[in-house]
Design a protein around this nucleic acid. Sequence first.
RNA 1: GCUCCCGUAGUCUAGUCCGGUCAAGGAUUCGGGGCCUUCGACCCCGUAACGCGGGUUCGAAUCCCGCCGGGAGCACCA
Length: 476
Amino acid sequence: MDGRVVLRMAPFPSGSLHIGSGRMLFVNQHYRERYHGRLLLVFDDTVGSEEKRVETEFFDLILGDCELAGVRPDEVLYKSDRIGRHYPWARRVIERGAAYVCRCPAELLRENRAQGRACPERSQTPPEARDEWDRMLGGSYAPGEAVLRLKTDLADPDPAFRDRVLFRISDLDHPRVGHRYRVWPLLEFSWAVDDIELGITHILRGKDLVVEDRMERYVWDLLEVPGPPFLHWGLLRVREAKVSKSKSYREVKTGVYDGWADPRTWSLRSLDRRGITMEALREFTLSFGMSLTDIEVPAETLYAENRQRIDARTLRRAFVPEAVRLVIDGYPFDLAQVELANHPDRPELGRRTVRAGPELYLARPDLQAHAGEEVRLKDLVNIRLPTDAPVAGGTARAEFTSRPNQRLPRLTWVAVPGAVPVDILEVDGSHRIGFGEAALADAEPRATYQFERVGFVRLDDAPAGTRPVRVVFGHP
RNA sequence: GCUCCCGUAGUCUAGUCCGGUCAAGGAUUCGGGGCCUUCGACCCCGUAACGCGGGUUCGAAUCCCGCCGGGAGCACCA
């Protein structure tokens, strides 16, 4: 087994991979590594349909998703390059008397199938079928006028399995191969062929494709070729991620979403943008094993996995949302600045000097929650808050009370001089604006921080110096 | 409706093939406590599960039957 395993992943290029479809990447990668095998990426880009079009931009997008996830396929192939190889297989099936060219309109075909009724063409002899097949290939039929169908059992309990269509005619312009082919195989048959021709040893895929197993197996048995075993995983949904691929597609296309990295897509790249590491995502995904159960997991589980990985190396910074300017009467003059640790438990991550002073920004929600109370400004002094909280952007006065650390509610603050405007992009696409401490002024793009009492955020990939500083919320 | 698949704590998972070592392990959540100048981290403690009903057996989460519940598919899409 070791070293001889060949796996394949077959995405349809219609969007970026999201948290659920990413499972394909991690599972295949996992088994590839475990058995030192090969992993092929085969774009399942047969011609599709009017509703399901192949779009070239998605080839690169998906390749980028793989790269991001740290999955490097040994080979990248396109089904659309391989269509010619499927025709001889069709011929073999016809020779066995197991396929015929059906000229029923789609409507009638479906009805007959539902009734378990045979179409007149079903009785074609192999030579007749071959002639008809040649006419199909030769262009005698228009799209919809003829299909090649497999003879199974019209009494099969599963109607979907009765004489499935193997090839159909389509005039759609394919973005890679144009009009090179008119006769296109359907997914099941194309895989029955390619899984053999590519020497695939194990097929690992989502259970949405289990019916297709049966078709592939049927063709292999018919042609007396041994085929690889199938393994499936159930549906994985993240509770908070109500993603629909078509919705994401629409919103990205119309610009409602900020591209495929918009947090609302829950795409791999959006998670990366939020500072969720691919290692965490990989562990998270793999933890579900190959169970056939459909599962719904709270995002918190993923967040916990990520927190475990990044907490110890992530620098702390102060951020104040819905900032209110607070002038503190009686503030001690010698406390113009304080030196703070970058991480409470990791001295090796260094320290920074932060401006303090009598003019500070505080969060309006904090002011409201503790109106009139004495509070501790974290790492600074104790003050008494005003009884009325002004609106965000307003100013209020507070009163210095004492210096020593006391067990009081601890609030986050940012000195007004040098405060950096920050815009947090939330998971639901909304924005939270506020001020961050001055140290954020020269933060590197893509750097991850923990905003104390807010959560883990990652800087967007904007040029340094962009104001407000754009960050994306990761998780608490 | 038909076909296939799946049911272990709030959530996810180990165990089910090959019955005993499972009075069910782990993770996360939640509750309580400790510690640290974050509501984060860390440490300690705790709550909590074999869908239901029969059967086989000395013994069932594990095998059999029935029921109930959930999911997916039923395209000339992938």
